[in-house]
Write a protein that binds this DNA or RNA. Sequence first.
DNA 1: ATATCGTTCGGAAACGTTTGCGTTAAAAAT
DNA 2: ATTTTTAACGCAAACGTTTCCGAACGATAT
Lengths: 357, 357
Amino acid sequence: MKKKVTLKQIARELDVSVSTVSRALADSKEIGENTRRRIQAYAKFLNYKPNNIALSLKNKKTKTIGVLIPEIVHHFFSTVIRGIEIVANERGYNVIVGLSNESFSKEVLNMEMLANGSIDGFVLSISKETLLKQDYHHFNETINQGIPIVMFDRVVNEVECDKVIVDDFKGSVKAVKKLIANGCKHIGLITTMDYVSVGRLRTQGYLRALEESQMYAAPNLILKLDDMVSLEENLDVLENEIEQLFKKNPKIDGVFAVNELYAVTAMKVAKKLGLAIPDDLQVIGFTDGVLSKHASPSLTIVSQHGQKIGEKAADLLIDRLEMDEDDGDANISDNTREQAFETCVIETEIIERESTK
Amino acid sequence: MKKKVTLKQIARELDVSVSTVSRALADSKEIGENTRRRIQAYAKFLNYKPNNIALSLKNKKTKTIGVLIPEIVHHFFSTVIRGIEIVANERGYNVIVGLSNESFSKEVLNMEMLANGSIDGFVLSISKETLLKQDYHHFNETINQGIPIVMFDRVVNEVECDKVIVDDFKGSVKAVKKLIANGCKHIGLITTMDYVSVGRLRTQGYLRALEESQMYAAPNLILKLDDMVSLEENLDVLENEIEQLFKKNPKIDGVFAVNELYAVTAMKVAKKLGLAIPDDLQVIGFTDGVLSKHASPSLTIVSQHGQKIGEKAADLLIDRLEMDEDDGDANISDNTREQAFETCVIETEIIERESTK
DNA sequence: ATATCGTTCGGAAACGTTTGCGTTAAAAAT
DNA sequence: ATTTTTAACGCAAACGTTTCCGAACGATAT
């Protein structure tokens, strides 16, 4: 078992000092041609690689970014991670992930864990429990320690930081207007409780679209589901609720659902009730996962481009991290170096498939 | 912006030495009652948390494990990560993920990146390109550096380490036998090229089941798809291939597919060709993802319990890491401390749904 | 011949910890 | 009264780097 080779070891065996080795490997002109070459050759021979931990300690930066998400077994979040990973890798950063599992305390613990030197900054999406409690102290404390945060998807005004969101509102308006343009007269909405910002915004988009088309949003047509229902376990509860929606609204001819599961379940229930898709009923969902693509009929969706979100979030974070770098010797500094926080909106896009005409 | 508080700072402000602070916080009895309490109180007041990087450097262990997978936007892999995360968290470890994207060079680079001090050990699944090239030097070198590896799912005999796999062979036999028991006489197989071990094993399972039931495995009934086809992009190619399979075998009445996508696509094509499921054709897939649960009809599958795989892999790795700990002062040592490598098989389970009788 | 300078390198500090060992003073033993 | 013990703490090394500062030495300038 070959132990890791260190500067000290090279120095000893080549009978020079550690600093000389360090400089030689950095190609410093302070070191003579011959010694420099000799050291470099030997180092390459031993396959020397500097110890990241030591570098981190010295430089006070770890070149790794912490990603904190509520759940990883979820198509949207994994595409975001992929995006983050891609640009992180490109720019020389590592990614360490923490799962909050939608729990407030796990979110806090994970943050504290990572904030003690392990990472340079966070990319995160807030857990549902945190949104419910509206307790954001851990975010603000982290930021106050000088660790920047970029939030995506589930964001909150109470924390000042860079944010990356999708145009939930606009996307929903577009979707519902498409249903209207396609001839739908009675459009149902299947959504979540309002405390999840994205659910609320998508609901508002639905309302706005109807309003702008001089259509009445019958309360009967709106199904608000609480979280217990979206759990995979009680799929039957979900189906039941949706069935009630259809039965209460026999004239329903369009459905807008705020996520994929609701949408495909709606199609399933509709088919059971003898409704033909898209002839009797057209369906559009929000998100893009695997379900929508492979359902039959395949589902028309509002795509949110998770990967692009991840890429943008990582870019924002790293930009800020590397801006802070040349902050110490801010001599030319216009006195406010702090770059203003940015909220970046990733455009959604409707992908038409078989569930609409 | 409050800078991170350090031992030195506490020491200065309390007019004691750094070592005294360190010991006081560690509750050492070497430090007097009063100073100890005074220091502890002040530390708590300042919300002192030790710097992980400094600890890592000192202890030569980072308490983080590296996870290297081919792809993250994949239900199976994300469930595995979830499993890893759960036990890692429980046992005080962090998880840093790297994506090889099925590429050999990215796999190597990622490993080298992380192996330089960032992690204590790896949990990984081999990329397809690596399997093709059969170049495993990076794994062996890493192990040789004293960094243990646990492989899961896609493993390889050429590397000696702990492994966690599913009983691909046995699971496939079970699945195909179930089709036979359900009355299928002509069972098709949709599988991948042989160099991916899991594909090969599942194919062998199919063959064995037929053999044991004195059935002939007609070459016509076996569809081996290369990887280009499994890409989401050319879904139509996949559908076309499967359609040919059905047309060449009009008497086909059962299908065993080695992954979810193949299985649901088979159902889709079958429905298009006018076959009723499960009456005319029964289908079983390997894996468990979201598709199978929500397809219509829902898909009977061989579930591989990704989360359990992740949990076991993480446990094996951490066990080995913490075994190595008390290895230095191995005084009572029966001369071979090295624990033998373990290959752990996670049992599969057939989950019956609507695609079988 | 002396002063100045540039080249080439080593020593040491620093990053934040932990820990073996030494030191001091007071308490206990002789 | 002198020695030994013990309690309570500080010093310094170590982990692996980078980098500031200074040292040595030969070469050039005066």
